Amino acid sequence: MTRFEFIVDGPPVSQQNRDRGKGNRREAWQNTVKQEAKKYWSSEQKIATGWVMLQITYFYDSDQMDVDNIVKPIQDAMKGIAYVDDKQVSDLLVRKRNLLDLRKKDTTSILAEGFARGKEFLHIVVIDAPNQEVST
């Protein structure tokens, strides 16, 4: 795997969500993430078997979520699509950016697609993890 990126309409569902009444919202969100990832997955791409870095950017218009609560449902949803198991995620970058205050430059075509939709979305990227060495 070199790079796999896709977008999902937001807002995301938090890891903290415990909605059991009208169906599990977190499970439904994970299914949405899986479906969107599969739309962007190319048959030429190979599922990662080594360490990966997961980058998630939530482009919002009303900030209602802590970034740490965004990660786990997305990370779990990607199992079997971009990587074999979420234990392969060795590096993680999670950001929130306000759509109203954003200056866009150097966007990929997929990220530009998200902006063109004109509403909240998440941009998710899985790449090979950087070198595993630690320097002090």
Rank of each mutant, 00 (worst) to 15 (best):
T2D: 14
F4W: 01
F6Y: 09
I7A: 01
V8K: 01
V8A: 07
D9T: 12
G10M: 01
Q15K: 12
Q16R: 14
N17Y: 02
R18Q: 13
D19H: 07
R20P: 04
N24E: 10
R25I: 03
R26A: 10
E27Y: 01
Q30A: 08
N31V: 01
V33C: 01
K34M: 09
K39P: 03
W41S: 05
S42W: 01
G50T: 09
G50L: 08
G50F: 04
W51H: 12
V52F: 07
M53K: 13
M53F: 05
L54S: 01
L54K: 03
I56K: 05
T57K: 02
Y58L: 04
D61C: 07
S62M: 02
D68S: 11
P73T: 06
Q75T: 05
A77S: 10
M78F: 08
K79M: 13
A82G: 12
Y83H: 06
V84Y: 03
K87W: 11
Q88A: 09
S90V: 08
D91L: 03
V94T: 12
V94P: 06
R95A: 15
K96Q: 13
R97H: 14
R97K: 15
L99F: 02
L100A: 14
L100K: 15
D101M: 11
D101C: 10
L102K: 09
K104M: 09
T107C: 15
S109C: 08
S109A: 15
I110H: 01
L111K: 13
F115P: 04
A116T: 00
R117A: 01
G118E: 07
G118P: 03
G118W: 03
K119N: 01
F121I: 07
H123G: 02
I124M: 00
D128E: 15
D128C: 11
A129W: 02
P130A: 03
V134H: 11
V134D: 13
